[in-house]
Design a protein around this nucleic acid. Sequence first.
DNA 1: CCATGTGAACAAATTCACAGCA
DNA 2: TGCTGTGAATTTGTTCACATGG
Lengths: 211, 211
Amino acid sequence: MPTSGISSLTLNRLSLYLRCLRGLRDEGQKRVSSLELAERFHLSAAQIRKDLAQFGEFGIRGVGYDVEQLTERLNRLLGLDRTHLILIVGAGNLGSALARFLSFDDRSFKVVAAIDNDPEKIGQMIGDVPIFGPDELGDVVRRTGAEIAVLAVPPDPAQGIYDRLVAAGIKAVLNFAPARLARDAGVPTKAVDLRIFLEELGYQMEAAALP
Amino acid sequence: MPTSGISSLTLNRLSLYLRCLRGLRDEGQKRVSSLELAERFHLSAAQIRKDLAQFGEFGIRGVGYDVEQLTERLNRLLGLDRTHLILIVGAGNLGSALARFLSFDDRSFKVVAAIDNDPEKIGQMIGDVPIFGPDELGDVVRRTGAEIAVLAVPPDPAQGIYDRLVAAGIKAVLNFAPARLARDAGVPTKAVDLRIFLEELGYQMEAAALP
DNA sequence: CCATGTGAACAAATTCACAGCA
DNA sequence: TGCTGTGAATTTGTTCACATGG
């Protein structure tokens, strides 16, 4: 019930390692050491080992890691060996783009439906993703079996919609709305605030310009 | 030359505080204490004070902070009192959406141009943002005075384009490409990897499902 | 008084350095 | 021998608690 014992930082690095490993595998490389991974992808060797060690012993001392096997284990660990269904809420610019963008080819994630309150849009498609009305929210979650909701709505309605998604049984939420949500403890929720990223760069740019 | 003395964590919270303060100001509130801010927006009072203290004394002991004045000072601190021009690189689904999405109404950020290598798109517009060809990259940066590049291209060409942007004199980069860039020390660069966010939720969902 | 600003305590994350095993 | 896995050291970030000053 706590948000899992593993930190976001570690988890995000695991995703990174996995991506690197896929590259190595596609090059036909059989084995890799933490040092080689670190050097090729600008990571830290000690940290790779620490991160992996949290989940058991993956490597062979004196040799390194088996690329195929480690790839496989990380895949399973991150739940990428099965398909997660995604519901987009808010089919504006960003929501529509995400509807097309988040169906990755490896089939770990697939967008199955979108919700919007614009009568013009309801019944239309974004690529092969159908758009439903707000009334159908709970129904769509249940019918499609969507697990992850991607919130791309204006800040004001965000909390209300979040609560309805939780009530409808959604399993996780990725929130692009620039609003601080009161989160449900049982539903992993991650905020992605694009404006904040820009503002960070804004500051760092100015700071970089000084002596 | 280091990426400024202030951590990303702090900087991102400042953005958050600023957003909350704007809300209070719009409600007509004159003063606010760190405690009130914390309670209303689910933040930590001590952390607000620590964060602000890094930049000088903003408040009045025994009283709190002047909403208007603090808003103003944070605005200036984050460089939001002037307009930052943005260049979108890669006008696919995500790039086009960002072209529309990242011009915020307060005029702190404005998208001025996009680059794409699809001959069909070159010369077209995304809203009021013109699309140019890859050859024109350096030229567009110089002509428009764009400071921030938003990279929304496939992983393979990302590094090459990044290097060209840096050479062209870009001041900061927000990278949406799922690629780990060799970053230029003088150019603040922030990675936003949407797939990694989904994978994190994927793991936490499974973890939340266990006892 | 009362809320800020801050040093000191605590917690988390990263890096170091080496023991231990293939 | 050489690289993993891991405690110990260090750095970074957060919380606590109180002296300070409007």
